[in-house]
Every structure is written in structure tokens, then in C-alpha cells.
Design a protein around this nucleic acid. Structure first.
Lengths: 231, 231
DNA sequence: AGGCTAATGTCAGCCGCTGACAATTGACAA
DNA sequence: TTGTCAATTGTCAGCGGCTGACATTAGCCT
């Protein structure tokens, strides 16, 4: 008899999981080496030795596979936000949620693909027009969810009070910007994006002041690797 | 002999212009009646009685034709911003630019397509995932341009001082939000979106205050047609 | 072992899009 | 006017993403 302990379920289930993982990895590997556009679905399928049709049974589109990991990461942020203590102000809570999420997200990614592969994929997303477009749409879908979450925390009605949506919109705008800058920079590490995030979020308040000429110059933003990453 | 006065240039040029206009209108008409996805490029070409290949010689993609008018509108905003007096603070200048642009944009649109057709197209864009994605990407491309413009106004270096990009990001976030809400609402008029814009921009400052519970409740946001549109 | 069902492969076909080449049609000069 | 040149268009073939339909394979369960 077989003493195999089904690590999660039946053989069928495990096989499916392995196929999905293999497709995901092969896709990201090809995307990051040849580029997204220059990679055909047939290539991905061939690399895993399944038919093209099978690829589309696991991922609804070529785009979807590119965002599989990203989707997980976003889930982490939402979870982190949900766990912020109620006394924190909206922007404070969002800020803390991102920063704390960046600290624990490495583990979660590693279970699916090498972290370094994910980082490279993110850069591909940011630099491929078609993917960037989808990325942005996904982002605003998340914005809506977060706005509702914030409204709930504050005991407000998202549709009656504009402040939750406005705050989240402003916050997400900054987040996107850091993502972009990070993608363009050279330091493709989790620490780098975390530091970048922290530094730019600190400017959200000051940037909205009416008069920029009166005050003293703000701290210079970190261009790329900010030596020791902010503690 | 023919006394035809070439309204703009040679016959060839006029013919090209007419074909382009016809394709544009036919496309938007079909998009707004059947939906974007359910409209094929062949249908558009057939409606104008040209080959599919010809369509692609005028528009690089099916998406591009959907954004033709939008592109013009964006140009207007940038022009308006360029003309704002230098003493206005960044957010003030952007705010005034949008509002003044909305006032003159009607004319410009009318020269190409019926305004009402443009408005319906905007709603199609906002409600079609594929188009929404592209719309967002185009938006952030414009953000980058505006950030540089603002930085120039203020005599700053976009890459050294984070405030221009941050302010523009926050501003654009709010703008996108109003566009979305407008698309969902029922009043598909230029006045409606102008009023919506004005109302929400007024909340940009207050929304970023740290404590939302201390202060008194803010004015209720206009859900849709806000009666008389703000002067 | 054998039946059941889920997963996969195969095939045909639509749609967006492109390159190549031929046919058409303005533009312009002789 | 006519003929030449160049721009515009049509036609055709083909690639890549994606889907429905149907046959085939392979895990599951009695």
C-alpha cells in the first residue's frame, strides 16, 4: 500500500496545483526574460508541456497570469488594514498597513515563486503599456474597497461623505507613484520599495499646503537605495 | 471649370478628413449603442464602406478611436493650465484650469462629433473594463506632464522635490473619482460633471486632516444633478 | 475491475492586427 | 488634355489571443 500522505488532498488536486504553479512560473520567467508581448501563450504552454487550451483553463487570459502574485500581495495589504486599531486616523491607518504589510509579504510570496521573480515581474508590469493599464484598473478597484473599509472604520457613509474616497484616492495616487519610481530605479529589493513608500507618504500632508514658496525646502526624496533603509 | 474653394486644402486631404470623421462617428455610434466589445472593427469599416485595413490606417487600434475625442479634451486642459497666472498656488491653478476648460470645451467637441455622443462615449469608457484600463494609463501619462508643468511654474526640479508629483497625483485621483461618479450617475451633461468636479475638489484639503471626528460634518456631496450648477 | 467524472487534448473558428503587393485615384507638370 | 508620380485603398495571407464543442485520458470510488 502507499504510505504517501496527501499533503493537502487527492492526487488530482495536487496535480492541478502543480500545473498551475508551473504555468505561473514559466509565464513569469518568460515575461521577465523576453518581455510580455514577445511571449506567446503557446510558448508558456509548451514550457510546461500542456496544450494552449489548458493554459486558458487555469488563467482567463494572458494578462491574468501576470497579476497572479500581485493579487496575493494586495490581499495582504487589505488584511493588514483591517487589523489596524480603530483609534488610528484614516491616513495613519493606511500608512501603517502598507508598511506592516511590506514586512510580512516576503514569506507569502516565497511560497509561490522566488521573490526576485516577483520583483522583476512588477517591473515588467510597470513598463509594459498593456499591463500597466490593467494594473491601474485593478488598483482603482481596490481603492473602492478600501474606501468602504475606511468609511466603516469611521462610521461614515461612503456615498454621503466624500472624504473617505478622496483620502483613499490621494493615498493611492502616492502609492502608485512610488511603485512607478521603484520600477524605474535600480534597486529591485523589497526594502527599497518599502523605504520609498515611507518617504513619499510623509509628504502627503505638506504637498497640499497652499503656499510652497514661504516654507523651507523639504527633505530631499530618496532617489534610489537610501543607504540604510529607514527604520 | 470648378469654382470649388478648397475649404482647407486639396481634395485628397479633405477626403481623408471625411473618412476619418466618418470612421470616428460610426465607431462611437456603434460603441454607445451595442457596446464596445460587441462591436467589431469590420462593422465600423462596413458602416463607412471602407476595408478593415483602411480603418487600421487611420486608427492604430480599436481602442484608439474610442479615445480620439478624449485626447482633444485633455489637450484643452493642459492649455488652460499653461495659461493660469503664475501667482496661483499649484492646486489652485489646476483647479481653475479644469473649471475654465470645462467652460470652453463644448465648442471644440462640437466640431468633431455631437457633444451628446461624446458624453455617452465617456460613459462607455468608464464602464468597459478594457477601456477603463487604457483610460487610466492615459491619465497617469498626463499626470507626469502636468507634474513637470507645475514644477516649472514653481521653479522646482520634479526629480528632486516630491511635492509636484504628489500634489498632481492627489489632484488627479480626485478628478478620476468625479469622472467615475459622473459616469455612473444619470445627468450626462457637461454642467453636471463641472459641478461635480468643483464640489469634490473643495474637499481635497479637508479630507487630509488628521482627525475627522473632532470637526463638524462637511457639506453633503452632490449625489447627481446639484440643482443650479455652481457659478 | 469497472463505471463515473474531472482534466486534458484536439479542432475549428472569431476577432484584432500586420505585412506585402496590387489596384485605384488625386496631384502636378508637360 | 494627358501622362507620370505618389498617396490611398483594397485584397490576401497569416499570427496571436481566446472560445465552444467534442473526443480522450486519467484520477476516484464502489
Amino acid at each position: 500500500m502507499t504510505v504517501e500522505q496527501p499533503s493537502s488532498a487527492g492526487l488530482r488536486e495536487r496535480k492541478k496545483q502543480r500545473t498551475r504553479d508551473a504555468l505561473l512560473r514559466a509565464a513569469l520567467e518568460l515575461f521577465t526574460t523576453q518581455g510580455y508581448e514577445r511571449t506567446t501563450v503557446d510558448e508558456i504552454a509548451d514550457a510546461v508541456d500542456v496544450s494552449q487550451r489548458t493554459f486558458f483553463r487555469y488563467f482567463a487570459s494572458k494578462e491574468e497570469v501576470a497579476f497572479a502574485v500581485q493579487q496575493m500581495v494586495e490581499g495582504h495589504f487589505v488584511d493588514a488594514l483591517r487589523q489596524r486599531p480603530g483609534h488610528e486616523a484614516p491616513l495613519e491607518a493606511m500608512r501603517n498597513a502598507v508598511l506592516s504589510a511590506w514586512d510580512t509579504i516576503g514569506e507569502a510570496i516565497r511560497e509561490v515563486v522566488p521573490v526576485e521573480l516577483y520583483l522583476r515581474t512588477f517591473q515588467v508590469i510597470e513598463s509594459t503599456p498593456a499591463l500597466l493599464a490593467v494594473h491601474l484598473r485593478r488598483s482603482i478597484e481596490m481603492e473602492e474597497n478600501i474606501a468602504r473599509l475606511i468609511a466603516e472604520r469611521e462610521g461614515l457613509d461612503v456615498d454621503a461623505d466624500p472624504r473617505p474616497r478622496v483620502a483613499v484616492a490621494a493615498f493611492s495616487g502616492v502609492m502608485r507613484m512610488t511603485g512607478q519610481l521603484w520600477g524605474r530605479g535600480e534597486d529591485a529589493s523589497l526594502e527599497a520599495i518599502r523605504a520609498l513608500t515611507e518617504a513619499y507618504l510623509d509628504h502627503l500632508g505638506p504637498a497640499l499646503a497652499t503656499d510652497w514658496r514661504g516654507g523651507e525646502a523639504p527633505a530631499r526624496a530618496p532617489r534610489r537605495t537610501p543607504g540604510a533603509h529607514a527604520e
